[in-house]
């Protein structure tokens, strides 16, 4: 009974945080609600018996991903007016989401085999988990593939977020794309050539509208 109440409270916290994250006007508030949602999910993972995964989730989602998201909001939304947008309830999407939930819920409830799994197994020792992870008969190749995916992601992230000057160089050499027109971009390219500035001024009208 106690565990049911604890589960309900934790589930309520996570669902509230998720709804606030999806519906908050200010993007940065949404990022903070996502942090709470991630911490709650890690807590639920812990109480389900997967302590190691809970700690990893806390480190990765609440730590790395949350902070990265907040930093990105800070980089891409310079003013409060930019960060807060009006949120309108979209009935069609709401119906779609509720329909999806209904479909899954029907599938779960209408499958009698699922109802027999009421008690969780004793958690396996973590050493055993590690042994299968680094065992050639286990998941070693998947682990290496996952490491490769992360490496590619890191390289791609560095490539995409190279400095403005590097992007300018690439644009000059390939002569595609338009240069930025915000005040900050202007400051960044004070050392850039004068003919590019003229291009900016000509295009300022489009973007302002």
């Amino acid at each position: 009974m106690l565990s049911m109440i604890a589960f309900g409270v934790l589930a309520l916290i996570i669902l509230t945080a998720a709804i606030k994250c999806v519906s908050s006007r200010n993007v940065i508030h949404g990022a903070y609600w996502l942090l709470l949602c991630a911490v709650g999910t890690a807590g639920m993972t812990w109480f389900l018996g997967a302590e190691y995964l809970a700690i990893a989730q806390l480190l990765i989602y609440a730590g790395a991903v949350g902070i990265l998201t907040i930093f990105t909001v800070m980089v891409t939304h310079r003013s409060l007016a930019q960060a807060s947008r009006e949120v309108k309830l979209s009935w069609s999407v709401l119906v779609l989401a509720l329909g999806f939930f209904g479909l899954i819920a029907y599938g779960v409830i209408a499958t009698p085999q699922l109802a027999q799994f009421t008690t969780a197994a004793e958690p396996i020792p973590f050493a055993e988990f590690g042994m299968t992870l680094f065992n050639l008969d286990g998941y070693t190749f998947a682990l290496e593939a996952a490491a490769l995916v992360l490496l590619v992601a890191i390289i791609a992230a560095v490539w995409w977020t190279k400095s403005d000057k590097a992007i300018k160089d690439v644009e000059r050499s390939t002569s595609i794309g338009d240069a930025g027109d915000s005040p900050q971009a202007k400051q960044n390219e004070t050392e850039a050539s004068a003919d590019e500035k003229d291009e900016d001024d000509a295009e300022e009208g489009d973007h302002a509208s």
Partner: peptide, 8 residues
């Protein structure tokens, strides 16, 4: 609190 008897 342990969620071992919450049910799948």
């Amino acid at each position: 609190a342990n969620f071992s008897n919450v049910g799948l």
